[in-house]
Write a protein that binds this DNA or RNA. Structure first.
Lengths: 344, 344
DNA sequence: TTGAAAGCGCTAACAT
DNA sequence: ATGTTAGCGCTTTCAA
């Protein structure tokens, strides 16, 4: 086995053909070439075939930058996420990517590094280059969000602020499902392990859990904030043990899995002694041990709907921005079960 | 708990300020504004401050499309991956994103859906809009790759073809590490569970494994191809059991984990009866059960280096494209151990 | 140091 | 149905 084939020669870079090249080669005006591509009806069938053939031969592709300059439309959308490597966002990205492609739009991806300042800068920098933004789990304060929305079409995912289109998961219903599940297994209380303080969805999750708990007369406590990663697990797990909780609901799956790893390390049986529930249903929640009970969101749908909302905005310029709520569903796996000492 | 705050009023969209707006407001020529931004030295300090202040006030940001039209450079790079949701590519994306941002470049992300045709179309469509491509695990045949490289600067990740810059993982060394590890535990043979037939890295992995096995006088077999996902696990695991292998090396971690799930289901002990090794060290290989022994690649580095290679190409237009080999390292976890019946 | 003018590639009137 | 012209926002000669 040799090392990978070493590149031998530098490929020669060819100049890209322009509309004028095609026009000359085809013996027509540039505008005719333009029409042949954009308004196929308004040019003689025969001329059109000829032009297209010449274009093909020359390897001509219209220059999007030039088009954008004229029309003000770039046919490009930007998707900004706090952390590209977080598996939660993979679904949103995929869905947005798919919807964008379907609408003939290019998707630009930006990582804001969980940093409001970086997010703002990206929006500013990308603003003139895109037709709109999908902001997933934006960390921007409401007023900045509104200001950004004055300059660019914006659709939010799992974040809501008046005047801006958004797609959010139905946490009210989802958290109720979680609490019903725990209550049905005899749990009389649970602990919520909080994530980042600025997280809009985190706030909604906790609010929903509390409200649902009240219905069942269950006691709740909120610990944290913890890192929403495996690394947040040990601290959170130890706090849970100290409190003697029979059930915990974690801010997200990564934290929940981190908690379970720590509990296993300390010889605590899940779900025998403690039930664990997460949010997100990420890849891995199905094969961790024990498999994690978690609230699934339709992340791909969310990404796609957000893109569609942006496309709508472009067309119906007058209408009020839409707020869509996507269903959530509880995926019950091995990590949750009867409360210790409860009779079935 | 109310449903998410309903958007109330449509944000008014403001016209974006242009260089002429700034010029007028500042009482200077457009060219002076341009220089104030791009050639700070060639304009009076005082004028410059004034122009910049006015620009700030008007919320002016240079329009990248207009710049691109003039210069031919878009300050944008495209990164194409076969499947955005595959955690393996998350690292590549993150690394590329980081390096691009550091170089002041915008990153466009494209999902080729493991589909050569989609990949080619994306390259063609994006070509005029970007300064270059990072192609991660490209599924394109060599000749198409070369043709694309004639029109655009290209850097490959985990793929190599003469004349095109690339960054590849050191599979020769990595596979040797895997085989040494198995041999040291008394395994006399192993089975390789293949992934997609077109996968360049898959071919390299198998070739490396075979070569290393030969050194140790070990017997090998290649099964598959299987889906490189959890879903590929059952078929692969059953084949392994039928063959009575003591050790398996899977195309990637997802497949390896899928295999382990199936083996657990069938009551086969890992690593007691079968040792399992994967490739990629994805998130989850650390918390699956048992934790997976796997060959780690420096994916973030790979993404970053590929971007750097592209930037280099832009500067040193004459030099031969670079081929970089990145080290790999075996992460030994619980899923691999002594061969059954081998004496320590 | 600054301004005027031309032009990047393309599309959209307008004219023929 | 097709050609001509102007102009999108910006940078870049070339003059002043």
């Amino acid at each position: 086995m040799a090392t990978p084939q070493p590149p031998e020669r530098r490929a020669e870079r060819r100049r890209r053909a322009t509309i004028t090249d095609v026009a000359e080669a085809a013996g027509v005006a540039a505008s005719t070439v333009s029409r042949a591509f954009t308004r196929p009806g308004r040019v003689n069938q025969h001329t059109r075939d000829h032009v297209l053939a010449v274009a093909e031969e020359l390897g001509y592709t219209p220059n999007p930058a030039a088009r954008a300059l004229e029309s003000g439309r770039t046919n490009t959308l930007a998707l900004l996420v706090p952390d590209i490597t977080n598996p939660y966002f993979a679904g949103v990205i995929k869905g947005a990517e798919r919807a964008a492609a379907a609408a003939g739009l290019t998707l630009v991806l930006g990582d804001t590094q969980e940093n409001p300042a970086a997010e703002e800068q990206l929006i500013r920098r990308l603003g003139p280059a895109v037709d709109g933004f999908v902001l997933s789990a934006s960390r921007l304060p409401d007023d900045e969000l509104r200001r950004a929305a004055e300059l660019n079409p914006i659709a939010l995912v799992n974040r809501a602020t008046p005047g801006v289109a958004c797609v959010v998961a139905d946490y009210d219903n989802g958290t109720r499902q979680i609490v019903d599940h725990l209550a049905s297994h005899g749990h009389r209380s649970f602990v919520f392990l909080g994530g980042p303080a600025e997280s809009w969805s985190g706030a909604r999750r906790w609010a929903g859990l509390r409200a649902a708990a009240e219905v069942h007369g269950m006691t709740t406590a909120r610990f944290g904030p913890y890192l929403p990663t495996l690394a947040g697990g040990p601290a959170a797990a130890d706090a849970v043990l100290a409190a003697g909780a029979s059930a915990v609901v974690a801010h997200n799956d990564m934290l929940a899995i981190g908690v379970m790893l720590r509990l296993a390390e300390r010889g605590v049986d899940v779900p025998g002694e403690v039930s664990v529930v997460g949010f997100d249903n990420i890849v891995g929640s199905d094969f961790c041990s024990p498999a994690l009970t978690t609230l699934a969101e339709r992340t791909e749908d969310a990404g796609a709907r957000a893109v569609e909302a942006l496309v709508q905005q472009a067309h119906a310029r007058a209408s009020a921005p839409a707020a869509r709520v996507l269903p959530t569903q509880l995926v019950v796996r091995r990590s949750s079960g009867p409360a210790p000492g409860s009779r079935p």
